[in-house]
Design a protein around this nucleic acid. Structure first.
Lengths: 106, 106
DNA sequence: ACATTAATTGGCAATTTCGCCAAATAACAA
DNA sequence: TTGTTATTTGGCGAAATTGCCAATTAATGT
């Protein structure tokens, strides 16, 4: 039996949230510990409004949490398994290169 | 040290490939075993050309392999860990619902 | 109250993705 | 060769995503 359309869309929303270079970089950074928006902005280099929008998208997907302390907002990763997630992505990449551009084959 | 821009783009390419309802559904189907394009077309219901394009995108990302036998092309999942990958996505969703719409809280 | 710093939101143009149709290609049978 | 079935490719309009600027909101200090 197929998964409900709605459920699939929720899943896709989570995956989409990770499917952007800046957001992926921020998620990896957050895996090491919480950060304020300003730190993430320095890391990414885009306009702060752009970074903020990326972050709210991540939050909306359920990937991060926020904690406002004073003027700053601290973001933290909600689900640690995202790291394993990336492990799988790396595996796809290594197997891909292994086959398509095998350095041992001439 | 941050991951190279190029590497990050490769990763994103893989994640993006999974970030679509039809493609995600097909990947899950393929996790059970290989399928021809026609079977996947029936599963998804979109025009066959649309399905074919989704599949070539998956292939380009390194997620699936193809095997042409006669007139048909059989697709198969290249990396089994994609299943675990989805496990993490599910975890994100369950924790999300747990907090935002906690049934125990009034 | 006023200024300052941190972050979010609205709006918009540029780019990318999506899905259909029509046409092309490939394998095989008659 | 001709026809048939399976799949891919080209092209195009529609929809979604992206990133900047400007304006707004929020917390704090003077």
């Amino acid at each position: 039996m197929a998964i409900s359309e709605k459920r699939q869309l929720e899943r896709v929303k989570v995956i989409k949230a990770l499917a952007h270079p800046s957001r992926l970089t921020m998620v990896e950074k957050l895996a090491e510990g919480e950060c304020c928006v300003c730190d993430l902005q320095k890391l990414i280099g885009d306009d702060i409004s752009t970074v903020s929008k990326h972050l709210s998208l991540l939050k909306n997907a359920g990937l991060v949490d926020t904690d406002k302390r004073g003027v700053q907002v601290f973001y933290s990763l909600r689900v640690p398994c995202v790291t394993d997630f990336l492990g799988c992505v790396e595996k796809v990449l290594s197997e891909k290169n292994e086959k398509s551009s095998c350095s041992k084959c001439k």
